[in-house]
Design a protein around this nucleic acid. Structure first.
Lengths: 232, 232
DNA sequence: GCCGAACCGTAACGTACGGTACGGTAGAAA
DNA sequence: TTTCTACCGTACCGTACGTTACGGTTCGGC
């Protein structure tokens, strides 16, 4: 009867969440080959109920993506006690989390679904993933960057430009390769290494001074400092 | 009868190329909603001929992607007369070309198709696009980077790492946003600006000296030099 | 002119799947 | 107990589309 409401953590009954989790599982397993009959069987519910709750197949798909998106909770930014080292660590941790999420099966699957549907322009799955993906990343990261700038640790004119550069340094060609099916072994150690490298490079480009902030204080938390703007 | 051969410029008759171009046009217009009937009508050929030539729908899709890929010709790298300025210009032009291709409708469409099919694992469209996309970019760019290193203009240990960083600086979040349907107005001027910024940043990170190569000689071709590792 | 190959146009088949209808059941309300 | 609601399971319908089959046409070779 309802068929198309905003999906979030508390607008759904437990049973509905079960159904959406079943759909999510089928999506991850079988790609886009999701059938209403399959979901009904997996969730032990009737197709009639699916249509009553979600309207049609697109509604179910949309609700599933939103449901998964609503699961991702972001840690708030600590504004106090900021110095070069804590800023570096914060960005590095951010990069690590982001790479971990992006390389996960669920992220790859949902991005694929959304891209597939963005081609037809029918549903707005693309916009949803965009909102909960890159845009959410920007919303979360930009305050950190601006706080770093206010503290004199970073230097940039355009926050969006700085963010997008950080995005590029972190993600590089990883996501498109995963989406295209490249087998890309990503161990936790490799991700940590990538996150550190990306953060070092970002500081090399946007650090307020090329000697202190990025090099000595921040970069030297676990390993070598950054020799000017040269890495590796 | 044949149904599944390698598709390149000269293994196809002119008539077959016409058919593939028709398929390409339908793909760009209608996303993945490509039907055999539609291709036959658009190309004024019979479905029987389609099946005789390409085997099945996947074969047609694969041939179409390969056909488009075979159209992209890369300019050979000039090894002679290399200096910081020409290297900068070369990388910058490379970035501009790449951004222009990536933001084009055909690229977006084919990447979407390939990603869609990579989900099912059925056809190897993902591998094809991967080969003719990021991997081709790497094959083309890496020699340039290594020549630059041999000439003492660049400094890096791992060519692949340097390439992937360049990729990240150039593409950033542009491709994923386009794939997800984000309306992203990309004028020629904006692309040129992005290409220059990315190249400057790359030189800031990997230039052999942070003062001469990237800053004065190369970066100063049209606009301001690079103040150490700080941009903007 | 005749033949066969290649091809066009279209009709037809099979099937998978989205969507609907309906009978049956459990539980809460009255 | 009755009744209403929500749900399950399943059978069913309509359609879109991949795939095949077939009659008719063009064209190069002899």
């Amino acid at each position: 009867m309802q068929g198309r409401v905003e999906v979030s953590d508390d607008t759904l009954t437990a049973r509905q969440k079960d159904v959406l989790d079943a759909a999510l599982g089928l999506l991850v397993e079988g790609g886009d080959a999701l059938t209403m009959t399959g979901v009904a069987r997996r969730a032990s519910c009737s197709k009639e109920t699916l249509y009553k709750w979600f309207g049609d197949r697109d509604g179910l798909l949309t609700a599933t993506v939103q449901w998964q998106a609503s699961k991702v909770r972001v840690a708030p930014v600590t504004r106090e006690g900021l110095n070069a080292k804590s800023l570096f660590t914060s960005l590095e941790g951010f990069a690590r989390d982001w790479l971990t999420v992006l390389s996960g099966e669920i992220s790859v699957t949902l991005n694929r679904i959304a891209i597939t549907h963005a081609a037809t322009g029918k549903s707005d799955l693309g916009a949803i993933v965009l909102t909960n993906g890159p845009f959410a990343m920007a919303r979360r990261l930009k305050p950190v960057l601006e706080i770093g700038r206010e503290a004199g640790l970073l230097s940039f004119k355009d926050t969006d430009e700085a963010f997008r550069t950080f995005f590029g340094l972190v993600v590089r060609d990883m996501q498109i390769r995963l989406l295209l099916g490249d087998r890309l072994e990503l161990t936790e150690a490799a991700i940590a290494r990538d996150a550190e490298r990306a953060t070092q490079q970002f500081f090399a480009l946007y650090g307020a001074t090329s000697e202190t902030a990025a090099g000595k204080d921040a970069g030297g938390n676990t390993r070598k400092g950054i020799p000017h703007a040269r890495l590796l």
